[in-house]
Amino acid sequence: MVTRSDRYKDQFLAILAHELRNPLTPLRMGLDILNSQPSPERAQQIHAVMDRQLVHLVRLVDDLLDVSRVSQGKIVLKKERIPLSDIIQSAVEAARPLVDSGRHALRVDMPVRPMWVNGDRTRLAQVVGNLLSNAAKYTPPGGKLSLEVHREGQDVRIVVIDNGLGIPLAMQSKIFELFTQVGEHTARAQGGLGIGLALVKQFVAMHDGSIAVQSDGENTGSRFTVRLPLLAEIPEGASANAGQPVRPEHPPRRILVVDDNEDVAETIGWLLSEMGHEFRLVHDGREACDAAREFKPDAVLLDIGMPQMDGYAVCRAFREDPALRDLPVIAQSGWGQEQDKNKTAKAGFDHHIVKPVGYDDLERALTLAIQSRRIAHPVP
Rank of each mutant, 00 (worst) to 15 (best):
K9Y: 06
D10W: 06
L13I: 03
L16Q: 11
A17L: 09
H18C: 05
H18R: 14
L20Q: 08
P26Q: 11
P26N: 09
L27V: 13
M29Q: 13
L34T: 05
L34M: 14
N35Q: 11
S36P: 03
S39I: 08
H47C: 13
R52F: 03
Q53A: 09
V58P: 00
V61N: 06
S68T: 06
G73K: 07
K79G: 08
K79M: 10
I82N: 04
L84N: 07
I87C: 11
I88V: 15
S90A: 15
A95G: 08
R96M: 15
P97D: 10
A105S: 13
N118K: 12
G119D: 08
R123W: 01
A125T: 08
Q126F: 12
G129Q: 06
L132G: 07
S133L: 06
A135C: 01
K137N: 08
Y138V: 03
G143V: 08
E148T: 13
V156A: 14
I158H: 09
I158A: 10
I161N: 12
L165R: 07
P168S: 08
Q172I: 10
Q181M: 05
V182K: 02
H185I: 01
R188N: 03
R188F: 00
A189W: 00
A189H: 00
L193H: 03
L193M: 12
L193K: 04
G196F: 02
G196R: 05
G196D: 10
L197Y: 04
V200Q: 06
F203C: 09
F203Y: 15
H207Q: 11
S210I: 04
S210N: 11
Q214D: 15
G217F: 06
T220H: 14
S222L: 05
T225F: 06
L228D: 11
L230D: 12
A232N: 10
G237E: 12
A238T: 08
G243D: 04
Q244V: 07
Q244R: 15
I255Y: 02
V257Q: 09
I268M: 14
L271S: 06
E274N: 06
E274P: 00
F279L: 02
L281F: 00
L281V: 14
C289Q: 13
D303A: 06
I304N: 03
P307I: 08
G311R: 07
V314I: 05
F318T: 13
E320H: 14
A323E: 15
L324C: 11
R325L: 02
V329E: 10
Q332W: 01
Q332V: 15
Q337H: 10
Q339C: 01
A345S: 10
A345K: 15
P356Y: 04
G358H: 07
G358L: 05
G358M: 03
D360G: 01
R364G: 04
L368A: 04
A369N: 06
V379F: 03
